[in-house]
Nucleic acid binder design. Structure first.
Lengths: 226, 226, 226, 226
DNA sequence: CATGAATGAGAGTTCATTCAT
DNA sequence: GATGAATGAACTCTCATTCAT
């Protein structure tokens, strides 16, 4: 969501340079203010939930009037989009962090998958956010490019698992199938956990996740995916 | 939702019978009209999604004024509740039907699970409906009794699978864990399929489901659940 | 509100008489049922207050459907009218009762006024009822005859006081003025008491009433009203 | 309701001053528009009465859409509160004005009480407004602070009478009792007058008020309150 | 007499969004 | 860039009343 890192401003004082510097300053200010709006949006969203999140309330918390938000985002949907983008960045960071300490492919699989699962288990609101784009499970209206970007970042968070599976000897097709199934399983467990359905069965999502992961590892180590 | 089927009494012409017949006719008419409202609600819901479903639109499609709906349902929430109730009945019917042709426990497991999966795969709107109770994934306000009833009917649809697993030798705890994991997996696959995420991975939810089922059967036949 | 006492039914068996008897029975039944509706209305009104009193709720408590009430009363207003009529009958009864034990005119004045004051002090809902006809203090739509009847019954309740004042030597004009002022004072005290305004002054409506009555008696005994 | 009067600053042309001027202009415009809404509300209220006063109608007369009113007042109740607030200010102004020409305590008592009485006699709609807080004579839901404020302003209008009574020699308790009784009498007379009940007795509220005031003055000069 | 069904008008309130300033 | 004002459409729900049966 944040702008591309800018090349460091040189210490020139020519008119043009000055002009550039001012533009830069402006852009940075704009960024900061946009971030402020996003912070407010996140806080509203996480506290009150999707349904009760309103432009008015976001503006209030950001210290703006509702109209002002439209300088930063063209619609409510785009604010959600930006929020989701941020969320996916955090997810990827988390996953990358977990991978650092993992050496073997098996460890990387476990670490990556666990980080993914835990991210949403610990931050259920980020799951809500993820589900927002498809209201009632149906796709929503964002710009196609943004949609592609978001989907890509989601995939990115799962790529390390796929790589690990392939490193363990699965061919690409099998690895893709397993990683997709893993994702589905995680989503299912999270949804059920979040909606209290898992309690209904007297189960713990964490234990079920562990069990699934153990099966997966066994399959991968055995070299067979199906 | 529908009233108990009454044994037909036609051959009598005594005043009492006439009275009963009229009552019965009325009740039937009432049922028909309630069903009409429900049909309208379902069509709105399935076409426009939850968010855009309004009492006004339901009434319009049912050929009523908004106020009239309140003779049939005390609130919008209750309409959803009734819709979901219906949906769960259809689900259970489907599952029971599939079981009839299944002899061995393994066949019953496969048949029950497949019927469950297919029901929602073929009718994705019923999945939306199922998610209704937890808007933004958080529980919603129905009467507790109705909520319990709906949850029970959901469990009912999964009970045959649990029974089959136990018949195959798993103890109750293991069977419960496996059935819960199965449910989660199905939900995950369906959600991903419904939201197009599964296409993103170039996978087919049906194949992934088959694979999961195969693993599960192997585990169950091997007698180990975790 | 109740129908005029009917002349006792004679023990005749002629067709005509039979006819009359049946009519009478019907009328009585109708009366009973109307009373039932009125009871329900009173209970709703006294429990929920004017604003929350609805035809639906009255019907519910009377064991009827809303439409049925229109067999007994042509409108909601008329139900209130009937209720107010009843209330005024009770007021008059109370006043008459108090007068029985009073011998001298002074005693009669004190007894009548106190009974009037206490009736409304003890039953503040009857005061609400009295105020209903003039919503926001402006006249309401009942039939003129009913309005006249109700006003007359209200005056009736004050007539004993007027008579007592005249018996104490005041001429009619003075007596009327004093009784009107007495009525106004009572109404003022009751309204203030009922709305909590009298608490605001740290006063008790009963003591203030006693004081006013004492002044009035002194004036009347002194023979001068202004 | 209106903002504190600001001392005009015009002669300056510095940026800060300009800024202040613009703010001031805006605030004044806002005040004017709020007053416009209040005017509309008053006109609806006075013409149609409380029950038939709706946000829609107020908006219509003010030349706004219903939603716009919510920029000025957070709820219908608050509009009534503001209306009542205004009314009480007018009452106090009237009373203060009347006192200016009064020298002796007795004159002050007469002037204050008469001003109070006349204000509501001449503007019966303000009486309706005063009764609003207790619909069906029962207290209503405003913010407690506003409620306290309004009650205080009502008392303020009666304080001069109380002070006069004490200046005439009554101790505080007696003065309070007399002023409360006076208030009650006025309210009673006004209600009766407004509802046409006083006509029923062939009396004039003004004469009755004069008579009451005369009695009160005599009592106060005689130094006895009960 | 009573019902059950339905009407139609209306209530207060909320909301994303627009736009002149 | 930001404001304050306003829009206009939408929302769920309530009500007194009517009327065929």
């Amino acid at each position: 969501m944040s702008r591309m890192p800018l090349t460091e401003k040189k210490a020139t004082t020519s008119p043009i340079s000055t002009h550039t510097q001012r533009d830069e300053r402006r852009r940075k200010l704009a960024d900061v203010r946009q971030e402020l709006v996003l912070d407010a949006a996140r806080s509203v969203f996480f506290e009150l939930g999707m349904e009760k999140t309103s432009i008015r309330e976001i503006a209030r918390r950001a210290g703006y009037t509702p109209g002002a938000l439209y300088s930063y985002f063209p619609s409510k949907e785009h604010i959600y989009g930006a929020l989701l983008g941020e969320s996916l960045e955090r997810l990827n960071t988390q996953v990358q962090l977990a991978l650092e300490a993992a050496a073997s492919p098996a460890e990387r699989l476990r670490a990556g998958a666990s980080a993914f699962f835990d991210f949403y288990r610990v931050n259920p609101h980020d799951l809500d956010l993820g589900f927002y784009l498809f209201q009632g499970m149906a796709p929503r209206g964002l710009t196609p490019e943004l949609d592609v970007h978001l989907n890509t970042r989601l995939r990115d968070a799962l790529l390390p698992c796929q790589a690990a599976l392939q490193a363990m000897g699965l061919d690409e097709a099998r690895a893709t199938a397993e990683v997709t199934a893993l994702f589905a399983h995680i989503v299912g467990l999270l949804v059920m956990s979040h909606t209290g359905r898992i309690r209904m069965f007297g189960q713990s999502s964490q234990e079920l996740f562990s069990a699934y992961l153990a099966h997966l590892l066994k399959r991968a180590q055995g070299g067979k995916s199906a």
